[in-house]
Simulated assay, not measured.
Amino acid sequence: MSLEKVTKEIFIEILEVLDKKLQDNKLELTLNIYGGTVMMACFDARPATKDVDALFDTSPIIDNILVEIAETFNLDKNWINQDIREPLRHIKNENLKEVYTFKSLKVLAPSAEQMLAMKILSARPEPYRDFNDAEYLIEFLGIETLEEVLNIFNNYVGRKYLQERQKVFLNYVGKDLNKSWKEFSI
């Protein structure tokens, strides 16, 4: 049976093993992480994630390394995926910061503002954690007004992507956080 969740501690172990395997193969890699991995590893907003959403250059050697890591840590074969490519095509500004540095591996993650914009864009229902993550990020950033949220969304995504789903999502977030921002009429 595969490990169902990756904790921050396991994630760091995985990165250390990945770095060692990259060194052994005289390779360097930059891993851009997103989603639940960022919420777990950078914000400590959740204890674990089910997979690692990331962008990275791949090759047959890197693919083999990732399979070896899956076997070593008893992870699902899709423990790391690049499914984030689709939502990222809507991001007009990336704001990535280096969050982990090893000898042959760099790990970059989006800013809290970019993560908030991405969570609003996704606005998926449970069991996805977009709602909880957006609330966490709004509190983390000290945001009080809907206009602040919309400015962040516009900066990273653009208001043309603020559709009915995102408006309903923001209405619920505002209510849940007891914010006094004006609701969208849908």
Rank of each mutant, 00 (worst) to 15 (best):
N95M: 11
A123G: 02
N132V: 12
S2F: 11
Y161N: 04
A54T: 05
L96C: 08
F169I: 11
K5Y: 15
K167H: 01
P60Y: 07
T49P: 08
N155M: 07
P47K: 13
E68P: 01
E9A: 10
T49A: 10
I10K: 12
S185Y: 11
S180E: 14
V52N: 04
I61M: 02
E164Q: 13
K50I: 14
E135W: 06
P60A: 08
T37W: 03
C42D: 05
E28K: 14
E148R: 07
L150A: 08
N32W: 15
Q82S: 15
V17Q: 09
H90V: 09
K106N: 08
K92I: 14
T58Q: 10
Y34I: 11
F102E: 03
A123C: 06
V157G: 11
V38R: 00
Y34S: 09
T145D: 02
D63C: 07
A123Y: 01
K20H: 14
S180G: 15
I14G: 00
P127F: 08
I120G: 06
S180V: 06
A117T: 09
I138Y: 05
Y136I: 09
W79P: 00
I14M: 11
A41P: 01
Q82I: 12
I12M: 04
D83P: 03
A123V: 05
Q82C: 10
L177S: 00
V157T: 04
I33Y: 02
Q82E: 14
V52M: 12
E183A: 11
K97S: 14
L27G: 02
V107N: 05
K5P: 08
R124F: 04
S185C: 09
E16R: 14
G142V: 12
M1W: 05
G174S: 14
I61W: 00
P127G: 07
M39N: 05
I65L: 03
I62K: 05
F56Y: 15
E164M: 11
F169G: 04
T49V: 09
V52A: 02
V38W: 01
E183K: 13
T30P: 06
I80P: 00
I143C: 07
E16D: 10
L121T: 06
R89D: 15
N132K: 14
R46W: 09
M118R: 06
M40N: 08
N154W: 05
L66C: 07
L15W: 03
P125M: 08
L105M: 01
E147K: 15
E68K: 08
E71P: 01
G36S: 10
Q114H: 09
S2C: 02
R159L: 15
L75M: 09
N151V: 10
L29R: 03
L121S: 07
G36R: 08
R85I: 13
L88A: 01
F169L: 11
K92Q: 12
E13S: 13
N81F: 01
R85H: 04
R89S: 15
K103Y: 09
A54H: 04
R129D: 14
M118A: 13
N132T: 10
V149N: 03
K8F: 08
P87L: 03
T72Y: 09
V168Y: 02
